[in-house]
Nucleic acid binder design. Sequence first.
DNA 1: CTAAAGTCTCACGTAGACGTGAGAGTCAAG
DNA 2: CTTGACTCTCACGTCTACGTGAGACTTTAG
Lengths: 125, 125
Amino acid sequence: MKIGELSGRTGASVRALRYYEEKGALSPGRTPSGYRVFSDSDIDKVAHIQTLLAAGLGMDLIGEILACLSGGSLLLDDCRERLEAERRRITGDIDQLIQTRSLLDELLGATRGPTRRDTAEPSVA
Amino acid sequence: MKIGELSGRTGASVRALRYYEEKGALSPGRTPSGYRVFSDSDIDKVAHIQTLLAAGLGMDLIGEILACLSGGSLLLDDCRERLEAERRRITGDIDQLIQTRSLLDELLGATRGPTRRDTAEPSVA
DNA sequence: CTAAAGTCTCACGTAGACGTGAGAGTCAAG
DNA sequence: CTTGACTCTCACGTCTACGTGAGACTTTAG
């Protein structure tokens, strides 16, 4: 498929997809005329990219990770370490966010209003 | 205390502290000669700012929040709503991060195997 | 065949949270 | 009084993940 279709299927803008390629996260083929040609598996890759981006990983790292994965379907030790480091960082971020949520509760409760446990608490670590 | 001392006590750079003031999150007094004068309570405020920043809140919102808090020691309904919106967003972010952590575990697990250190056995790469 | 739609490669613009001098005034110490 | 450290106000530089044309070519629809 061409870039427009991938954009439609993933929600990522055409510009974003070209940017992902620039960072090595995608490696589409080319038609004789220069058009990028993506495969179905790229849909999943883009989803991964979006997920990792949302988690705060930089495109440079994501690019290396996906390059590693598609390269040999096996992570080099170097990549593993960095992924594990990110995993630890994310766990730290989660804790941090939970504390911050408590701070917000404090601010919200400090002034007035019922200390009601309203909406569900999906994630409590 | 002057800006340098507050910087030392909070870890925030002098530039950052001036930026926080610019955004209305801090409102230090001034000496006749124009030097900023901070109080001890500003140490806590800076800590809150750093926490909220790390949680993804923008300085504009943080500025309004702290201005609200120190202004009337009571949150306006408008402020409350926005804080509650941020609370929901943070909860969503936490869930997102937990899912992402699972993705990382998946990626890390996909290559599970002996972590060779010096074996020059090129797997598939 | 022509017009519209899609794609290409530059390459500058954007927003957020500061970094980094530039040039100048101010304060504590010797 | 003179350093030297500290502070002040501009105001441009930085980094990230794209947005947004500009100008030109390719493909598709009628």
